[in-house]
Design a protein around this nucleic acid. Structure first.
Lengths: 375, 375
DNA sequence: CTGTTAGCGCCTTCAC
DNA sequence: GTGAAGGCGCTAACAG
């Protein structure tokens, strides 16, 4: 068990084997091993330019033999373009984003790109920092679920193609893939209306992005088209955190016991809403119906299952990857494209006709049970 | 609305504004803008070496003004080390891995690293490809939930420090962070035994990794220590997919209606088990108790909630990031460290004493209800 | 078809 | 305290 040679083979304890790490074979070494020149070796590997068949074979064999791995940094420096794509995502802990990231990574990997992932945690600061990183590594494109337009613009200004995913903060100047939020929200609200619900509350955390704005618009459109009154008191603002949502729902049902259906605008809010209903002893769907935007695994595990809008996250991710690949290949050619994913409704057990008669007077009486303050 | 100048400011349509993208300012440009030399500018930015205070200020100001972003590729090429860390994870769609990735990314980002994420989807091929990518970009370390030892060894052989996460395929030569699977499995099995269960089935998909092996060992140890018989028929092998697990559980309960408790070795298997129990009309915890290894969100949403082993994924991820940072800082110094995360038990509603008397005859009668075929 | 040359942007000696 | 010079590894001209 003597000392290992510095350039020896075999597994050394965790990396950094010696004061100075073993020099990795360069294309020079490869050329030497294949008895040719670096440029020929380069051509043989990349497929650009002419190389005699036997020489190419020799180079490939030698590369395999000496374990040559091209240095992407050198290549990027030289070519001024990389095979890296930056992915700036809000929160990997949220299954929606995790899925999105997974699909994007998978697609881009199979297209020969690798992915640099930055979580922005919903914070502009982190987002901008992420964009800087992307610029610094010369990514050839970026996919962003934007928090603000800062990052998007930073990248565009330096000529980096951007795809905005799930929402757009700047609809004019980049490609994007969006879910048809208006349609999804409208259809799931229609579903409730069709069951006979007339007092449907919307639990929503933001209306400043295309997502929240669209969902609110769809909800309103459905009510309007059905000739139902639009009661502002039933649009319940909340923070993004499930806990806050839970409290908001509890307060709502306290204040407005006449509500027969609840629409949570995303999966996190649905979590809070579901908990609030369970804790409050409101039975779904008997006492109240619950629907959500964005289908995530727990919604099909609970009883009753949650009726929800499936955003087809896989399609969303695939479309993002595709746009990125096209844009890289096509350069600036062509106008910006914004793709819409058509969501679908998944019916589960959390929705049913309201217990009381669906026929409601035009000026509904809140019911004798609660003395709702008129605030 | 004339043509835009090639080097003009303002937002251009999605990147690649012109045939030849605008040249980004280099350190030369920065030096010029700050009326100094590139080397001084470099020193001013990096903090290495002497720079007069006023000159440094000038450089920083100029950098801000002209929007200078150092080229990481050039820097890495020159330094032969990057601020990139490779993260090779099994499946971002699984909340366990998603969480792990999220924590790791967050920690490393705040330590000044960026993260290249590769999903291996449980396949060796993808894993090896990922390792090649990491080598190619000269990551300064990698965190891997390993599928095989190939990737681990490839990286080590080239001097890249590796941290194995969640499981180890090579326990001797790299750092690692593991969950104490034996202890976790033992304790949750103990919990069942304490409730009076004697016929406890284990649903498990692999025993070749440290995870499965440890969980099996813990389960066995608990039975042994309690003096309970170890019935091989109750160790139910399955594939990883929830569907397969579901079928396996259905088959098990068909074959062995005397089973009063089920232990699913991970969150995916628990999903299948939970579904199988619901579909089969087995009520938890009255008819059967269910426990799982790995706490994920749906387990606290369903009713009854699932009693489970919390792996403290956040601690796991933080420890990985910490080891990586230490290893990069410390070079090869010091021996390999393997940290263990001590899991804890989360009691929920899915466990209760078995319905029939806990006192069981030594040669248990399967019960008259089912005519279980003796296959 | 092949080899030589030059330079991508940066950092770090080294001389001043 | 500062600047000039060279080279990290690669590939796209260009000349043979």
């Amino acid at each position: 068990m003597g000392r290992r040679r510095e350039d020896g083979a075999g597994h050394r304890p965790n990396g950094t084997p010696s004061p100075q790490p073993r020099r990795r074979p360069t294309i020079q070494d490869l050329a030497r091993a294949a008895a040719t020149s670096p440029s020929t070796a380069s051509r043989a590997l990349s497929g650009n330019g002419y190389v005699a068949a036997d020489v190419r074979a020799r180079v490939l064999e030698a590369a395999e033999r000496i374990g040559y791995v091209p240095d992407i940094n050198a290549r990027t420096l030289r070519n001024r373009r990389s095979r890296a794509v930056g992915v700036l995502i809000s929160d990997l802990r949220n299954p929606f984003y995790a899925n999105l990231a997974a699909v994007i990574e998978q697609q881009l990997r199979s297209a020969g790109y690798h992915v640099i992932v930055v979580n922005n945690d919903g914070e502009q600061h982190a987002e901008v920092e992420g964009a800087r990183t992307f610029l610094a590594v010369r990514v050839s494109a970026a996919i962003i679920t934007p928090v603000s337009d800062r990052a998007v613009h930073m990248l565009m200004d330096d000529g980096v193609p951007v795809v905005q995913a799930d929402r757009m903060v700047d609809g004019l100047t980049t490609d994007g893939v969006l879910v048809d939020n208006v349609q999804g929200a409208r259809r799931i609200t229609d579903h409730l209306i069709g069951l006979g619900h007339t007092r449907i509350a919307l639990l929503i955390d933001e209306t400043g992005w295309t997502t929240g704005a669209g969902r609110l618009a769809g909800y309103r459109a459905a009510l309007r088209d059905a000739g139902l009154p639009m009661d502002p008191d039933l649009v319940v603002p909340t923070r993004f955190q499930p806990d806050t949502a839970r409290e908001a729902v509890t307060a709502l049902l306290d204040r407005r016991p006449d509500v027969t259906a609840l629409f949570a605008a995303n999966n996190r809010l649905a979590e809070g809403a579901f908990q609030a209903l369970q804790e409050g002893g409101h039975r779904m769907p008997d006492d109240i119906s619950l629907v959500a935007f964005d289908d995530v695994p727990w919604m099909s595990m609970v009883s009753p299952g949650i009726t929800t809008v499936d955003q087809h996250t896989d399609d969303l991710g695939r479309a993002c990857a595709q746009l990125v690949v096209d844009r890289i290949a096509g350069g600036a050619a062509g106008h910006m494209t914004v793709r819409y994913i058509e969501p679908s409704i998944v019916l589960r057990g959390s929705t049913a006709p309201p217990r009381t008669s669906p026929a409601t007077p035009v000026h509904p009486d809140p019911g004798p049970a609660a003395a709702a303050p008129s605030a």
